[in-house]
Design a protein around this nucleic acid. Structure first.
Lengths: 210, 210
DNA sequence: CTTAGATTCAAACGGTCGTTTGATTCATCT
DNA sequence: AGATGAATCAAACGACCGTTTGAATCTAAG
């Protein structure tokens, strides 16, 4: 058995996860070394292997720490969607986008993690894909079911194509919140709220297209 | 001065570029080593530094070899668009997507390169971004001008948001041609043609959304 | 105060990285 | 045949990689 889970906010464990998140977002998983991570976290090099066992496990833990909460929130909002009688595409897309938006607004680490998530899309690494699919694939499946109900005119193949495009576009756009400069007169919060609503309208139009 | 440019199809130089393309697509720029590349290309390890000077230069050359032709073709099709009196959004999107589609169909290397291109989107590497922006940014600017003319109802900020989303979605989707299984009764060519038309309809709907 | 276990630490492990070297082979020309 | 420069080669360079070790330090219970 490994060391016990530590929930203290500024523990060695959490500092490593935060630093890894930031550096994986910036340089990728292969590009960020454990020496960079531990130096940035101001902990000893051996601390990573002591607390996580290996770099691979650290990567998975970076995902787990955020995705557990992110997907719980998505599931929760999707459940609320199911209760609505006049459910729209925009509602479902909002349930998918908003948790990621809130995460990216919560703190600098949250914003970094959304970029890490986009990395995971680009990486075709077999182990990482299976880890994500095994642990969080069921959430995407639940969303697909609701989308299928709202878009009965699309056959299965067509729907998958579009959801694939949508998920790629959303991931890409959420990861790049910072690329386009916000206007000086709107807050960062307001700026991202607008982005999310743009995204949702864009995606809904694409899904509805004849 | 470096060695002279070699246009022979199966020269050491070309073999290295082909192997690098394939391995960069699969493992990323940091994740693919020169030893893997030279082993795959069946050339000596030192050949990379002899012919390209450094790994960085090799990466840039992988892009240059394909992008010169890709963007020339895009520019050409865009010029044809400008002559049309009843120009539609779909025409312009087609001018952007079709050259990449043709490239991904031309050979295995072309398909790999489209995935390398998607990597470049995910990588936030400063040097690579500047290289691409310096050498090929003007093409994107030309497309933006034509889009602006076709979407006069959108202000500048709104248009940039949407083009940002579109370019991300297109890049993601083109890189992932292989993810969704094609039906057994359509050829690979036909399959990708359909994909492109899906993509274009999706993107056009998103750009037009109220 | 003592002790046991959890944690941190400096140092080193073997391996791989990008790059360089100097000799050797090859192709081309007089 | 001999000379010349391009190309290839095996080998090695120092640097950095992920990981392991064993001693030092901290923490908390007896």
């Amino acid at each position: 058995m490994g060391p016990p889970v530590d929930l203290t906010p500024f523990s060695t464990r959490q500092r490593i996860l935060g630093a890894a998140e930031e550096l994986f977002a910036r340089h990728g998983f292969a590009g960020a070394s454990l020496r960079q991570v531990t130096a940035s976290a101001k902990v000893n090099l051996a601390a990573v292997n002591y607390h996580f066992g290996s770099k691979e496990n650290l990567i998975e833990e970076v995902f787990r720490r955020r995705l557990d909460e992110l997907n719980a929130r998505r599931t929760e909002l999707l459940a609320q969607c199911r209760e609505r009688v006049d459910l729209s595409l925009e509602d479902v897309l909002d349930a998918f986008v908003r948790p990621a938006l809130e995460l990216s607004l919560s703190d600098a680490g949250g914003a970094a993690f959304v970029r890490v998530l986009a990395r995971a899309y680009a990486e075709h690494d077999e182990r990482l894909r299976r880890f994500l699919s095994d642990n969080y694939g069921h959430v995407l499946k639940e969303f697909a079911v609701v989308f299928a109900r709202l878009l009965p005119q699309l056959d299965k193949e067509e729907l998958y194509w579009r959801l694939d495009i949508v998920s790629g576009a959303l991931t890409y756009a959420m990861a790049d919140f910072g690329v386009l400069k916000r206007r000086g007169d709107v807050s960062e919060q307001e700026h991202r709220e607008r982005t999310a609503s743009h995204l949702i309208r864009f995606a809904a139009a694409g899904l509805r297209a004849a």
